[in-house]
Amino acid sequence: MTQTLENLRETPSQTGGPYVHIGCIPSFAGLSQIYPEDLGLKAIGDGAKGERIAITGSVFDGTGWAMRDAMLESWQADAKGNYPGEKGADPKVNGFCRFAADGKTGEFTLHTVKPGAVPGPGGSMQAPHIALWIVARGINIGLQTRIYFEDEDNSADPLLSRIEQRNRVDTLIAKKTGDGQYRFDIRLQGDGETVFLDM
């Protein structure tokens, strides 16, 4: 016999299901009369400092079909690399945003400011990135990934450096398609499968 560990196990996840919008972004599901305002509809407020950007993409299933029911959440630092709540953070940057694939086209767009670099492990710096969390019917536990930017210096990023198959690094890098416009597609499996994280 030994002493007993008093730690608890994490509650198991279950899929958000097809109607996840009702709970998380009710106005998207047509239920706008309950709350004065959904939480997390905007990553930034008016007057946020930094470069305004829009990131558009789709979440593709293993057959190459752009999923119509995915919901995404993003979390990021402000333009100087401070997370909301940290000392000196831009009060106009909420950092958190919820958005969904369009029910007809399967496309999502995130409107935000480009984040700054943030500290990483052991005194390193992480290249500018936005954390993503993806849920949908058929996803039993939310998928974590990150958006990096092709016009930033990603060469010393500790996470990207950990990816053994260098051909997969590209799956985490948004492609510039115009002034302040980026494309970031997510592939759940198969050719070009996105690197998903366990962090």
Binding site: W65, Y83, H129, A131, G138, L188, D198, M199
Partner: peptide
């Protein structure tokens, strides 16, 4: 068709 085929990349958490 909605689950990754490849292993997740495990790392210690960061400020993010």
């Amino acid at each position: 068709a909605r689950s990754p085929n490849l292993p997740l990349l495990s790392m210690e958490s960061t400020t993010t």
